[in-house]
Design a protein around this nucleic acid. Structure first.
Lengths: 220, 220
DNA sequence: AAATAACTTGACCAATTGGACAGCTTTTGC
DNA sequence: GCAAAAGCTGTCCAATTGGTCAAGTTATTT
């Protein structure tokens, strides 16, 4: 049941063909896992989507679980790289604004990744237990400490840092995970949100959350 | 592919035994669908969880899809009943506070329902297309109109009503859908959030969102 | 060009999937 | 108490599941 999340197993050491095919398979797998979750996805469908025979998938990723682990690792890697951390020495308003903008950009650019991650967590994160153990609580405490610093300095309202972080996560991730419902509500064609929607969402979040933390005095 | 979402198919007309067994089956089905999604869930497992032979599930719900439809209908029914609507004649702060508190209560009480709904939407809502068509956009417009009224009266900041609603949905639903991640971050035992966590979350959301809408002048 | 490594894939397997059905027992209506 | 309706379930089925394997082909190395 456990899963091994190596960041870069031993790619790169092997040839060009391997890298290309693994990439095609992972891309196809992301689409299937995002639609059906781990159990619901089928290797046959992934193979068809990748344009390869099924046995080829098993050649590169020895099992369904290994493939899923690779997909999750690929996602976590990408997020680690693209999402900068908050700097306690910086200005809270500027730092939070940068974070929200970065998260919304990611949300827009990689909605599948967000959904795979979301479905995995909703299902009880059975294959991410390792990820959410040990170090995770400490890592999270460091994030909250940044807000605690700002609060102690009187630079923002004494808002519970942990729940403020959850608010940042939820409100931004929602635009990837629930884009289907959102585009229906807004009456967008083909269940596809437009650039303007993301911008409007970003500005609204910035206003409410920053002002809600005491970081904006007037309307702007 | 389409799905029929009758609120109360023709229960009640039939006997006591049927009602009881259907209830047991739906409860078991909710747990399985929440863990594995529609495709990933298996009727065999649902039957085991309900303590009934598999054929019995097919007796009451003629197919897997019909069972899933019943589960979704059960959820939507419940939400419609338990979640009051915003009253444009009321005070914005009081109305939004009541809504957030009600949503957090639901989140706490029926996390499985929230997750099934969430996974369905993340998967592109393939079995809720009917629900998200026609009337949905109009229904949503009515919700936004309430905020538009308050804004026009100068009773709150001119925040985009649609995205404000998304913020209310996302920030509250997050505590059901991602409770696994949250409890890990907070270091709670057995992946179970405590009553105090929900209270703290509610107060934090109330502070940030209400103040962010210009509904709270000072800290409170 | 020979040899070795990497890659490809059709055929096959046991297990599980959703579902059909016939025959059985229990409950209900009169 | 009898007949009809409702409920129950073991057995079977075709299709799909993840996975194996051996026999091939292509690339790479020397």
């Amino acid at each position: 049941m456990l899963i091994q999340l190596e960041s870069h197993p031993n790619h790169g050491a092997t040839g060009r063909i391997r890298r290309e095919n693994e990439c095609r398979i992972i891309t196809a797998a992301e689409a299937e896992f995002a639609r059906h979750g781990y159990k619901g996805a089928s290797i046959q469908k992934i193979a068809e989507r990748a344009g390869l025979p099924k046995a080829n998938i098993h050649y590169y990723f020895r099992s369904k679980l290994k493939l899923y682990a690779a997909v999750l690792a690929h996602i976590l890697d990408m997020w680690d790289g693209l999402l900068g951390e908050l700097d306690p020495a910086g200005d809270p308003a500027a730092e939070m604004e940068a974070y929200i903008r970065a998260k919304m950009r990611l949300t827009r650019q990689y909605p599948l990744a967000s959904r795979i991650f979301g479905i995995e967590i909703m299902s009880g994160a059975p294959y991410l237990q390792e990820y959410f153990q040990d170090g995770y609580q400490d890592w999270f405490r460091e994030r909250t400490a940044v807000f605690a610093t700002w609060i102690a300095r009187g630079e923002m309202d004494p808002v519970d840092p942990a729940h403020l972080i959850f608010l940042l996560w939820s409100s931004t991730q929602h635009y990837a995970d629930f884009s289907c419902q959102i585009s229906s509500a807004l009456g967008r064609q083909g269940n596809e949100l437009e650039q303007a929607d993301y911008e409007q969402a970003t500005e609204t979040l910035l206003h409410v959350i920053l002002k809600g933390c005491g970081l904006r005095k007037a309307l702007d």
